[in-house]
């Protein structure tokens, strides 16, 4: 069944693509292989097929035929819109794209990038092997939500989602941009209830997103920039801690820190950190060889983690 439909869709595409003039519906139904049954059944089939091809992004042009053909509409697929055209793409650029597209071992962007690159590789551009790039990207934090959010951004539709935070759980947002930052996906948008632009981490979204049926519900302000809404990576976010490190240990921490004093068993260091979570892991990794003196909240967080293990 699926075979027959696939075959018919391919035949229809081929026929509409090959024709210079518009093909009458009656011509299509009688000449393109696969249209069977009563006239009514064939027509229903054809209507569905057109919708299906359009959903694949294929443009089917409807045109008026010569007046001698009565008022039956005609159809064709314009080659210009069907065929991929990236002017002056070089082999070197294709190689760069291949490398880039192979980064995604996960997330919805992977298959999309792969099918895009396949099309580019079908253009007959001689590929090169000139790059020595070996670095890959591995995503430990894929998100299933990207595609849906991207669509909402493009349509300018509001979204609703549940968010894992201490205060407001249910959010209504005008989504502006999806941001990949520090190995995580974020969403920046106008929080409708709070009337302020906010940053959300996709890994903290709870469950599904609901996209509004309406389009063009909002405008992205012309002066909006992503950088304005990311936590600043300078003074504001860098925290300072006071840590005791056992002698002869913690070389990595020592390297980053500033020694305040030396003791018989422990040395005391001031160590700055940006990401509390990562820093805590690092500290815990050192086991009994490091001890947090300040700040108190960092100590509490560490204890909470350790307690979590014990619980």
């Amino acid at each position: 069944m699926s075979d027959r439909k696939t075959e018919r869709l391919i035949n229809l595409t081929l026929a509409l693509l090959a024709t210079k003039r518009y093909l009458k519906k009656s011509e299509i139904l009688s000449n393109v292989a696969g249209y069977e049954g009563t006239q009514e059944a064939k027509e229903r089939m054809f209507e569905r097929d057109k919708d299906d091809l359009r959903s694949l992004g294929i443009e089917i042009e409807v045109g008026d035929l010569d007046i001698f053909f009565e008022d039956e509409p005609g159809y064709r697929i314009p080659q210009k819109s069907y065929e991929l055209n990236v002017p002056n793409l070089s082999g070197r650029e294709l190689a760069l794209l291949s490398i880039a597209s192979s980064f995604w071992n996960d997330s919805v962007l992977g298959p999309n990038a792969q099918s895009g690159i396949r099309k580019l590789q079908s253009l007959g551009i001689p590929a090169t092997l000139e790059f020595e790039f070996r670095m890959k990207y591995r995503f430990d934090n894929p998100s299933e939500l990207l595609e849906q959010i991207a669509k909402a951004i493009l349509q300018k539709s509001r979204i609703k989602f549940a968010y894992d935070s201490s205060s407001l759980k249910l959010r209504q947002l005008e989504p502006y941009r999806i941001v990949f930052w520090n190995s995580y996906w974020y969403l920046i948008g106008m929080d409708v209830d709070r009337k302020a632009i906010r940053l959300f981490k996709l890994s903290r979204f709870l469950g599904a997103i609901e996209t509004s049926k309406r389009k063009n519900e909002f405008e992205i302000p012309s002066d909006f920039t992503v950088a304005d809404h990311l936590p600043k990576s300078d003074v504001e976010v860098i925290h300072s801690s006071k840590i005791e490190i056992r002698r002869e240990t913690g070389a990595l921490l020592r390297q980053r820190g500033k020694r305040l004093s030396q003791g018989s068993e422990y040395d005391t260091y001031v160590i700055n950190y940006e990401n509390e979570r990562i820093f805590l892991r690092e500290l815990i990794w050192h086991g009994v060889n490091v001890r947090i003196l300040e700040p108190v909240n960092l100590k509490e967080e560490l204890l909470a983690i350790v307690d979590g293990v014990l619980a």
Binding site: L17, E83, L84, L154
Partner: peptide, 15 residues
């Protein structure tokens, strides 16, 4: 079918 289909918007943005 000599030429590849044009890319979808998802394909372009992914690239």
């Amino acid at each position: 079918l000599k030429k590849p289909r044009s890319m979808t918007s998802s394909e372009i943005t992914s690239l």
